[in-house]
C-alpha cells in the first residue's frame, strides 16, 4: 500500500461519511458544517490526483464563499427545526431516487467491465495542475478571454451597485 492509496481511502471514506451526514443531520447548521468538511475532503482528493490548483480553488470558492452564503441563508431564514420542513413522498423524491439509481448502475457496470481498473495518473497531470501552468496559459493563450471576463465582472458590479443604490436622483 502506497501513501497515495492510503490517503485516497481516508479522504474518500471521510467524504462519503460527511456527505451522508449532510442529508441525515437533523439540524441545518450541522448539515452545513458537514458540507464544508465534505468540500475539504474533496479538495484532498483533488490533491491526490495532482490537481493542486483545483484543490485550492475548491477550498477558496466552495468552502469559503459559497458556504458563507449557505450559512447566511440558514441564519436569516431562521431554520431551527427541520422537522417542520419534512415532506412525505413526492414526485421530486422519485426523480431523485431514479437519477441516483441510474448513476449507481452506470458506475457498477463500468466497474464490472473493468473499464476503470486500468487507470493511472499520467505524468503530465502533475505538471498541468499547478497554478504556474494555469496562470501561464491564462495570460498567454487566453489573454483575450481573461480580459473580457474582467470587463464582464466590472459590468456586473456596476449593475449591482446601480440596482442596490439607495437614493436614485429621481426626485429633484
Amino acid at each position: 500500500m502506497t501513501l497515495e492509496i492510503i490517503s485516497f481511502v481516508v479522504f474518500a471514506l471521510l467524504a462519503i461519511a460527511s456527505a451522508l451526514l449532510v442529508i441525515t443531520a437533523k439540524h441545518p447548521v450541522v448539515s452545513a458544517m458537514s458540507m464544508i468538511f465534505h468540500f475539504f475532503m474533496l479538495a484532498g482528493l483533488y490533491l491526490t490526483l495532482s490537481a493542486q490548483f483545483i484543490a485550492v480553488m475548491q477550498v477558496m470558492v466552495y468552502a469559503g464563499a459559497i458556504m458563507v452564503l449557505v450559512v447566511f441563508a440558514i441564519m436569516l431564514l431562521n431554520l431551527g427545526d427541520e422537522g417542520k420542513l419534512r415532506s412525505g413522498f413526492n414526485f421530486r423524491k422519485l426523480v431523485a431516487w431514479f437519477l441516483g439509481g441510474a448513476l449507481a448502475v452506470q458506475i457498477a457496470v463500468l466497474l464490472s467491465n473493468g473499464a476503470l481498473s486500468n487507470t493511472a495518473i499520467s505524468e503530465k497531470a502533475s505538471e498541468l495542475g499547478t497554478a504556474q501552468v494555469i496562470g501561464g496559459e491564462l495570460f498567454t493563450n487566453y489573454i483575450y478571454p481573461i480580459e473580457i471576463v474582467g470587463i464582464l465582472l466590472f459590468a456586473a458590479i456596476v449593475g449591482a451597485i446601480y440596482m442596490a443604490k439607495k437614493n436614485l436622483p429621481t426626485e429633484e
Binding site: P145, V149, G159, M163
Partner: peptide, 26 residues
C-alpha cells in the same frame, strides 16, 4: 473565433441588458 469568446460576449451583453431593462427602478 473561439467558443469561449462567443460565450463571454453573449454573457457580457446579456448582463448589461438585464440592467438596462430595469433601468427605471421605480
Amino acid at each position: 473565433n473561439s467558443l469561449i469568446m462567443l460565450f463571454l460576449g453573449v454573457e457580457l451583453m446579456s448582463i448589461v441588458f438585464y440592467i438596462l431593462t430595469g433601468f427605471f427602478r421605480n
